[in-house]
Design a protein around this nucleic acid. Structure first.
Lengths: 231, 231
DNA sequence: CTTTATATCTCGGGA
DNA sequence: TCCCGAGGTATAAAG
């Protein structure tokens, strides 16, 4: 990995064209040929970049460029597409090379999968008498997060999201449409369950007869405690 | 901006919990308190990070941590949420500080907005006799990209995407449903226009009576040339 | 391999 | 401010 602090301008041409005027920035050249251009702010997204696999070529600029103050040119060409990033360096303020090795990678925990597991274990959260049929119930167009039955034994398809938005309601609608054509399942009702449900999603769901349930992640995790407190 | 190459382990707790085992990585501490942890591969996304606004506190570790080999601890606390990133540094291989200043920012060109503008200017691409009513036609659930009228004066709602996928068809369907309740507009037909339309999106659109149009970006840009070549 | 759903998404615009 | 849609989305999982 090479780290360079430089006054530079940057041009990208590919799925769009973009230009960064002359300023001081951090350039990161990674082992796989990818290059990141970072400023001293914003979030983790670089101002401009080239994704791997790519080839970085460092060259001495043409004479007209040198007269304009460019001392070094980085041309980063993507290996598969015709995306190209050109960094015109006017002044190098820092330059260092480092050996990092392969990273063991990130260990994550606790997202939608966890919510699904918790709700499956405590399916009565949806209402008394609810029973779990199965998680990841397969249909022709994909798996429904949870299939359950209500107290009257009717099938209930549950779609779970961390944040409930309109896409999720559309997704559940497609599942319901399909499942209701199956005489062994129909009539199937829908439940849209999320930690947070956006107003537009709620409106659309209600309009389509889909029930919305807001999940309390902490309560689900501590449901045994809650149960014991009930007595 | 501070750049550190270090052998370190990293823990994040916030919207999820995540852990990075001990390895050599690049740490970037930005002026706004944000911190990025990068490896020598992957793409522009860091292995782990803290978004601004945040506060970075560098401290000498507790004795049990020091015995485990930790020489320095970075605690990055988000200013508004309770997200927290902790970097346990075992060995510092490089450490430098740089003054970058404020970045003038990126100049972009050519995305969906550009396609919309081009199609609005050359609405006859959709068919002879088509006329533009307006771009960004407001409805209760959001703006329709283009409202036009066909050669018979019937309203046509156009949804434009760079890549036409299923959610774009859903979006247009919602608009059409709503607009067709308006007696001043009805009947409204739909056109799904994109540079590239995925087979599933095309199937769904066709099934719902929505016409698909593949846009040629270069042809739209050079439409005057094309016109002149016709004679 | 392509397609689909998710993301600590980020980022910008509009009400 | 919140909400919604777009992204050079990236990325992992599934068919």
């Amino acid at each position: 990995m090479r780290l360079v602090i430089a006054r530079c301008s940057v041009d990208y041409a590919g799925r769009l064209t973009a230009h960064l005027p002359l300023a001081t920035r951090l350039l990161i050249a990674k082992a796989d040929g990818s290059v990141l251009v970072h400023s001293d702010g914003g979030s983790y997204k670089p101002l401009n970049w080239m994704s791997p696999p790519a080839k970085l070529t460092v060259s001495v600029p043409e004479e007209d460029q040198r007269e304009a103050g460019v001392v070094e040119t980085w041309t980063v060409q993507h290996a598969k597409t015709d995306d190209r990033l050109v960094v015109s360096i006017h002044e190098v303020l820092h330059d260092s090379e480092h050996e990092l090795g392969v990273d063991p990678g990130l260990v994550k925990d606790g997202v939608e999968a966890h919510l699904q597991k918790l709700l499956a274990e405590h399916i009565a959260t949806l209402g008394e008498g609810y029973t779990l049929v199965r998680r990841e119930y397969m249909t022709a167009i994909g798996p429904v997060d949870i299939l359950a039955r209500d107290d009257a034994g009717r099938a209930v398809a549950v779609e779970i999201k961390r944040r409930g938005e309109i896409d999720g309601v559309e997704q559940l609608t497609r599942y319901l449409e399909l499942m209701n054509r199956d005489p062994l399942l129909a009539p199937v009702t829908g439940v849209f369950a999320a930690q947070e449900i956006k107003p537009q999603a709620r409106t659309l769901a209600t309009d389509r007869g889909i029930r919305c349930v807001v999940l309390d992640y902490d309560a689900l995790r501590g449901i045994d405690d809650v149960d014991s407190r009930l007595f």
